[in-house]
Write a protein that binds this DNA or RNA. Structure first.
Lengths: 281, 281
DNA sequence: CGAGGCCTTGAACGAAATCAAAGTCAGTGG
DNA sequence: CCACTGACTTTGATTTCGTTCAAGGCCTCG
């Protein structure tokens, strides 16, 4: 089910994260794997936490685990025992209600933490599914809290990361509660652009890994509305759409599009933009 | 501004939470205050955490602070240094975007924790306003983490409470993203009923402390929609509305009302209910 | 080639927002 | 005591944004 591997030979703790991208082949069927263990410093780097000297010589290692597209990292109700950090790949977290309806909560990627919602009830409250082949670092929760007592910085980092997640959800609530469909899609594009930028990829041209349906679920919209809105942004030149590839042409316009002025003035405004565009052709 | 008091005389740690409700008058202008200090056990009780024997003899005390209706507990961007636990009273937490638009995130009451969103950036990310006179317990964050290293149960409790907050927000996102106006209002009433029940008040008859506008902001609806929906529930007998007093008559009906069937069948269904009601009169 | 996802686009509908007006209530001051 | 004010609420009429329904196009993969 999971393509886990548990070699007896530990990788030297000094191996840096950058080396993680360097793929190595194993004898077993020419499968390719990234390195299978990370030390505390690597974890801190991924989380954007200033790693401290005392952590350098830490012997503790955290295991990596790989998931193929479509595989589940954890399922709803599964006993909680570990957090995960995304080292590479793209995923989605899904909330499933009592009727089986799915609501997408986030699209985690490199540096994001998974599983925090499992701490309070000792069961994961959501499902995490890989949208591409992924490499995650497993952080056994017990091990982590124990380490946190030794390295105060780590403990504070854990509180900080959990707090950050909470703020992220708060902003999401604000978005769903107050913004129009166009504003939501615009913000989604801006946040994806920023995330790709932070990861070192182009923030101007990137590949959304999820379907329109998944974007819609995430934004509280239907897939048709998402599609239409992307088409509109494409028409007025703010973005270039080709299937799941998105080119950002006017980031400021996307950022500036907030709550739309009460109503009818907006349609006019967009129409004006379109008129201007057409007169130029 | 704040009706804080810092007496030199500490209340004995053995004083129980139940005594907190016993108001005492001070010489200063006949103002009435609840007790001004709580110990670790009291805090654990409030958070529904099994308090452990080792905490009983803990000398550490946490200060209380009172807020009058309308006062702010903390404001957006204010430097973070403490969490708060609500001992009594009702509040609202408000997210304020760059344009000054307000979005209500929660209505904290007895046992709820405030300020978690300040940890990650060392600045509070939201505002908390008292909807009634309140009594809060101040938990200086440094002190708390230090104590957490001694009492492992406390540390785990802190993680658990933060995780619980995250799950709460996730459920909120699911609600805003997928439910109709009627379902949102119904769920809001159910959750308020449960909260009042947990606090020892009646879960069948309670006083909403917030305006229709605030409820609407919380649920991502307009105040008119909230008002209309409450009127509808009142008409079909599920609740009794008198201003901000709400009587719950059919909790199951409110709980069962989920995503409404695609559309037109619903209006018919509600109409049927109304018809049935009218034929009974 | 054909089947099955996925995406786009159009037309019609409907849920909730907006606009508007009247009603209720608490507090204030004559 | 009552009229007045201002905040909050209810209710109705109208508008509109986003959904729903429907049809056709596109791409991948067997």
């Amino acid at each position: 089910m999971l393509s886990m591997q548990m070699p007896e030979t530990h990788v030297a703790p000094s191996v840096s994260i950058s080396a993680a991208l360097q793929l190595v082949s194993t004898e077993a069927g020419r499968q390719r794997h990234s390195k299978l263990w990370s030390n505390l410093r690597d974890v801190c780097d991924l989380l954007h936490i200033p790693s401290v000297a005392s952590m350098m010589d830490e012997a503790f290692l955290f295991q990596h685990v790989q998931f193929k597209t479509g595989q589940r990292v954890h399922t709803l109700g599964q006993p909680f025992d570990a957090l995960y950090i995304v080292n590479s790949g793209f995923l989605k977290t899904v909330l499933i209600d009592e009727l089986g309806n799915e609501q997408i909560l986030s699209f985690p990627m490199r540096g994001d933490m998974l599983g925090v919602d499992g701490i309070c009830t000792k069961q994961y409250a959501s499902e995490v599914v890989a949208l591409s082949d992924c490499d995650l670092i497993v952080l056994p929760f017990k091990k982590l809290t124990t380490l946190g007592r030794v390295h105060i910085e780590l403990e504070q980092a854990m509180y900080a990361v959990m707090s950050r997640e909470l703020v992220r959800e708060q902003v999401m609530v604000g978005m769903l509660g107050a913004l129009s469909a166009e504003a939501r899609v615009a913000r989604f594009l801006v946040s994806m652009s920023e995330k790709f930028g932070q990861m070192g990829y182009s923030s101007k041209l990137f590949n959304l890994r999820m379907t329109r349906h998944e974007i819609g679920s995430y934004l509280g919209l239907t897939l048709e509305t998402v599609s239409r809105t992307l088409s509109t942004f494409n028409q007025i030149g703010w973005i270039s759409v080709d299937q799941r590839m998105i080119g950002i042409n006017d980031l400021d316009a996307l950022k500036t599009l907030r709550r739309l002025p009460p109503s009818r003035s907006r349609t006019k405004k967009l129409q004006v933009v379109l008129d201007v565009m057409s007169t130029c052709m």
